[in-house]
Amino acid sequence: MRRLIYILPLGLFVVLAGYFAVGLTRDPSVVPSALIDKPVPEFTLPPLLKDGQGLASAELKGKVQLVNVFASWCVPCRVEHPVLMRLAKEQGVTVKAINYKDKPEDAIRWLNQGGNPYAAIGADQDGRVSIDWGVYGVPETYVIDAEGRIRYKVVGPVMPDEVERHILPLIKSLQGDLQG
């Protein structure tokens, strides 16, 4: 019994070291969304493009789609842009966007250069709506199901690997639910 007390520190330390080892594999800067499986927040945003569509919560129902939060001043957004282009043009995924705290002319120039993958773009000039979405950095990307619920969130640029492993399978299964 008395001996056990002397072994206790070692035991506790081993457990601790195990936690550290697991901790090394985690990225502590990723914050999970509080809105997963919750309906998208109520909002209406004016269109970014004069002849384009704005974005409102009502329009996020009826089919599985992505909502991407982007800005022309955001460097990682450039990285994910071709990926989003491919998703929209080749894989036929509907991608809508919230343009976060951007000058409209900058955003438009940016889309003219890199192409416009978005079916609709709402301009969130003061970032207020984005707060309702729980956005804490750009880019962020949400997968919305047909009932208008947030099912998945990617923080940071959407990479091809992420698309293959999570986004496309999730979209498929959500669409399957819809048909089934």
């Binding site: 001996r3 002397y6 072994i7 520190p9 070692l10 330390f13 081993v14 070291a17 550290f20 080892a21 090394l24």
Partner: peptide
């Protein structure tokens, strides 16, 4: 990983000796 290994060897060794 290196520092963790170092920490484990140093501390677990010492605590084992202690036990």
């Amino acid at each position: 990983v290196f520092i963790l290994a170092l920490l484990v060897i140093a501390t677990a060794g010492a605590l084992l000796l202690y036990a």
